[in-house]
Simulated assay, not measured.
Amino acid sequence: MKRFIPHVTVATVVEDQGRFLLVEEHAEGRVVLNQPAGHLEADESLLQAALRETLEETGWEVELTGVTGIYLYTAPANGVTYQRVCFAARPLRHHPELALDHGIIGPRWLTRDELETRSAQWRSVLVARCIDDYLAGPPYPLELIREPTWLT
Score class of each variant (00 low, 15 high):
K2Q: 13
R3W: 09
R3E: 14
F4A: 08
I5K: 12
P6W: 09
H7N: 12
V8S: 07
V13P: 12
V14L: 13
V14M: 09
E15L: 08
D16E: 15
D16R: 15
R19Y: 10
R19A: 11
R19K: 15
F20G: 11
L21I: 13
L21A: 11
L22E: 03
E25N: 03
H26L: 14
E28H: 15
G29I: 10
R30M: 05
R30W: 01
V31I: 14
V32M: 06
L33Q: 03
L33G: 03
N34T: 15
Q35G: 05
P36V: 05
P36R: 01
P36L: 04
A37T: 03
L40Q: 11
L40R: 11
E41F: 02
E41S: 02
E41H: 00
A42N: 09
D43G: 07
E44S: 00
S45C: 04
S45T: 01
L46F: 03
L47G: 03
L47A: 04
L47F: 00
A49N: 00
E53N: 00
L55A: 09
L55P: 05
L55G: 08
L55N: 01
E56Q: 00
E56Y: 04
E57Q: 15
E57W: 03
G59R: 00
W60N: 07
W60P: 05
W60A: 05
E61Y: 05
E61N: 11
V62H: 01
L64T: 02
L64P: 01
G66D: 11
T68N: 13
T68F: 06
I70F: 12
I70S: 08
I70R: 14
Y71P: 07
L72K: 11
L72I: 00
Y73A: 09
T74F: 13
T74Q: 15
T74M: 14
A75D: 15
P76R: 14
V80W: 10
V80D: 05
Y82D: 06
Y82W: 14
Q83R: 14
R84D: 05
R84K: 08
C86L: 10
C86H: 04
C86S: 15
A89S: 09
R90S: 13
R90T: 15
P96E: 01
L98R: 01
A99W: 08
A99C: 03
L100S: 03
H102Q: 12
G103T: 11
I104F: 06
I104N: 06
I105M: 06
I105F: 11
P107M: 06
P107L: 09
P107Q: 14
L110Q: 10
L110I: 08
T111N: 07
T111F: 12
R112P: 04
R112I: 07
R112E: 12
D113H: 03
L115A: 02
L115H: 04
T117H: 10
R118V: 00
A120S: 12
Q121T: 06
W122F: 15
W122H: 14
R123H: 12
S124L: 12
S124G: 14
L126V: 06
L126W: 12
V127C: 03
R129Q: 13
C130Y: 06
D133K: 11
D133P: 07
Y134A: 04
L135Q: 14
A136I: 10
G137C: 08
G137F: 07
P138W: 09
P138H: 12
P139V: 11
Y140G: 02
L144I: 09
I145F: 04
I145G: 02
E147F: 04
P148L: 05
T149S: 14
W150H: 13
W150N: 02
W150P: 02
L151R: 07
